[in-house]
Simulated assay, not measured.
Amino acid sequence: MKKTVLFLACGLLLSSMTFAQKFGYINSAELLQAMPEIKKANADAEAYAKTFQEQLQTMGKEYESKVQAYQASEKTMSDAVKEVKVKEIQDLQARIESFNQSAQEKVGKKKEELYKPVLEKADKAIKDVAKEKGFDYVFDTSSNVLLYAKETDDILPLVKTKLGIK
């Protein structure tokens, strides 16, 4: 009887070990902040954005001065001159808005370009550590995303077969 119980206990232990999976987690935001490369990427992105900010400030000052000049002499202007001045101010405002939108897009692309190698390096390190330490899954606590999963746990081929999809 003792042998049977011992045998069943060993069998249960072995079967549970084969189904045991190792989970890990990481805060990728904290990892990125600790990487020296991110500091340089942030500084480069800020410097790039600053060039656009300076141009926007110059355009903003020009806009303010045109509005003030218009307001100061509006009463003495003819309707035709008022119309021209208002059109100039509106055109400048449209240029500022267009420039601002373009600048934001360019800064966004520059950030992507600067951060891409840092993100790839971090991702590779996470996956390498996961494989080396035998983790089946690694989750990111900063974004609740699965960062790594063993390829052997992908059931897509099995589901496709079940549905008759090649």
Results as ranks from 00 to 15, higher is better:
residue 1 M to T: 09
residue 1 M to R: 04
residue 3 K to S: 12
residue 5 V to R: 08
residue 7 F to E: 10
residue 8 L to D: 13
residue 8 L to F: 12
residue 10 C to M: 13
residue 11 G to S: 09
residue 11 G to W: 03
residue 13 L to E: 10
residue 14 L to M: 09
residue 15 S to K: 11
residue 15 S to N: 09
residue 18 T to V: 12
residue 22 K to P: 09
residue 23 F to C: 03
residue 23 F to W: 05
residue 28 S to T: 15
residue 29 A to E: 04
residue 29 A to H: 01
residue 29 A to D: 08
residue 31 L to P: 03
residue 33 Q to T: 04
residue 34 A to E: 13
residue 34 A to K: 04
residue 36 P to N: 00
residue 39 K to L: 06
residue 40 K to D: 09
residue 40 K to E: 10
residue 41 A to L: 00
residue 41 A to D: 00
residue 42 N to L: 07
residue 43 A to V: 05
residue 44 D to S: 06
residue 46 E to N: 12
residue 47 A to T: 12
residue 48 Y to P: 06
residue 48 Y to G: 05
residue 49 A to K: 00
residue 49 A to F: 01
residue 50 K to Y: 01
residue 51 T to C: 02
residue 54 E to P: 01
residue 56 L to K: 13
residue 57 Q to T: 11
residue 62 E to T: 13
residue 64 E to P: 01
residue 64 E to D: 15
residue 65 S to E: 14
residue 66 K to Q: 14
residue 66 K to Y: 05
residue 67 V to I: 14
residue 67 V to N: 03
residue 68 Q to R: 15
residue 69 A to V: 07
residue 69 A to G: 14
residue 73 S to N: 15
residue 73 S to R: 13
residue 76 T to A: 15
residue 76 T to I: 07
residue 76 T to Q: 09
residue 77 M to S: 04
residue 78 S to V: 03
residue 78 S to A: 04
residue 79 D to W: 02
residue 82 K to D: 06
residue 82 K to I: 10
residue 84 V to H: 06
residue 87 K to Q: 15
residue 88 E to Q: 13
residue 88 E to S: 07
residue 92 L to R: 03
residue 92 L to Y: 06
residue 94 A to F: 10
residue 95 R to A: 15
residue 96 I to D: 01
residue 96 I to N: 03
residue 98 S to V: 07
residue 98 S to D: 09
residue 98 S to W: 02
residue 100 N to V: 06
residue 100 N to D: 10
residue 102 S to D: 06
residue 102 S to F: 01
residue 102 S to A: 09
residue 104 Q to H: 03
residue 107 V to Y: 00
residue 109 K to Y: 02
residue 111 K to D: 01
residue 113 E to W: 00
residue 113 E to T: 00
residue 113 E to A: 01
residue 114 L to Q: 00
residue 117 P to Y: 00
residue 118 V to T: 04
residue 118 V to P: 01
residue 119 L to Y: 10
residue 120 E to A: 14
residue 120 E to M: 13
residue 122 A to W: 05
residue 126 I to P: 12
residue 128 D to N: 11
residue 133 K to D: 13
residue 134 G to M: 09
residue 135 F to A: 09
residue 135 F to H: 05
residue 136 D to Q: 12
residue 138 V to T: 06
residue 138 V to G: 09
residue 139 F to H: 04
residue 141 T to L: 13
residue 144 N to V: 04
residue 144 N to S: 09
residue 144 N to A: 14
residue 146 L to V: 08
residue 148 Y to R: 09
residue 148 Y to S: 14
residue 148 Y to G: 14
residue 151 E to W: 10
residue 151 E to T: 12
residue 152 T to M: 09
residue 153 D to E: 03
residue 153 D to W: 06
residue 154 D to P: 08
residue 156 L to V: 13
residue 158 L to K: 15
residue 162 K to D: 14
residue 163 L to F: 15
residue 166 K to D: 11
